[in-house]
Amino acid sequence: MLSTDSDILTTAEAWVREGRGVALATVTETWGSAPRPVGSHLVIDAEGNFLGSVSGGCVEGAVVSEAIDVIGDGKLRMLEFGVADETAWQVGLSCGGRIRVLVERVS
């Protein structure tokens, strides 16, 4: 079954209560044919476990690695992925869209 955003936020809370380091990634803007709508979430723990999606699988790897840094230093990060962006080209938003993702620590 697909995880709904509600499951993801509940999981984020449960993970923090278990004592895990947790970050929440949220799609804040999309342009063109982005695969997941604004407001979509990905929850990540310090070990790199994650639930949900911000792009349907294209850039999750990059978001997870940034999220681990966010868990470490507690600083908000704004990530942008799109075909015009070299990093994103490597991780590949093949749909041709662009997305902006906010990553924040939950604690």
């Binding site: 509600s6 809370e13 908000l76």
Partner: peptide
């Protein structure tokens, strides 16, 4: 995000009440 805020958000969702989380993107 503070845990208390996430917890409040989840409480609203569980009770089927709408809410908006407002985030200042510069300061967080």
């Amino acid at each position: 995000m503070k845990l208390t805020l996430l917890s409040a958000l989840n409480t609203e969702r569980a009770a089927r009440r709408a809410c908006v989380l407002v985030t200042e993107l510069d300061s967080g």
